[in-house]
Amino acid sequence: YETDHQDYCEVCQQGGEIILCDTCPRAYHMVCLDPDMEKAPEGKWSCPHCEKE
């Protein structure tokens, strides 16, 4: 199925295993987040940009 999420990391602009924000189209590698994540979040997750809003 098609999503509106970007298929690359917002921080480093590379693809790969990325996690998707449930609020906006941004996507991130877990290691590119500050602080980085050990494992993928369970349930709904909002990226740092959305958390600030």
Rank of each mutant, 00 (worst) to 15 (best):
Y8S: 13
C32A: 01
Y28G: 06
C21L: 00
C9F: 00
E38D: 09
V11E: 15
Y1K: 15
Y1G: 15
L33S: 14
C21Y: 01
E10A: 07
D36F: 04
K52G: 06
V31G: 11
E42G: 08
D34P: 07
C47K: 01
D22L: 04
Y1W: 15
G15K: 10
R26L: 05
E17G: 07
P41M: 10
E10F: 11
D36I: 05
M30G: 08
Q6H: 03
H49S: 06
G15C: 02
V11D: 15
T23A: 03
P35I: 11
P48K: 04
C32D: 02
I18S: 09
H5C: 09
C50Y: 01
K39Y: 09
K39A: 10
S46R: 08
I19T: 08
C12I: 04
C9R: 01
E17S: 10
E2D: 12
P41V: 06
V31C: 14
H49T: 07
Y1A: 15
T23Q: 08
P25D: 04
T23C: 05
W45P: 07
C9Q: 01
R26N: 03
H5A: 15
A27D: 02
M30R: 05
E38C: 10
D22H: 02
D36H: 14
H49D: 05
K44C: 07
D4C: 13
T3I: 13
C32F: 00
Y1F: 13
H5K: 10
H49K: 06
Q13C: 10
L20N: 09
M37I: 11
E10Q: 03
E53K: 04
C24L: 00
M30T: 13
M30Y: 03
P41Q: 08
E42P: 12
Q13K: 02
S46F: 14
C47N: 02
D4P: 05
R26W: 01
R26C: 02
E2C: 15
Q6C: 06
L33Q: 08
Q6P: 07
K52C: 08
R26A: 08
I18E: 12
Q13P: 01
C32G: 00
G15N: 04
Q14G: 11
C32H: 09
C32V: 02
D36G: 09
C12Q: 02
A40K: 10
G16Y: 05
E51D: 08
A40W: 08
K39F: 02
C24H: 03
I18D: 10
G16C: 04
D7F: 02
D4G: 11
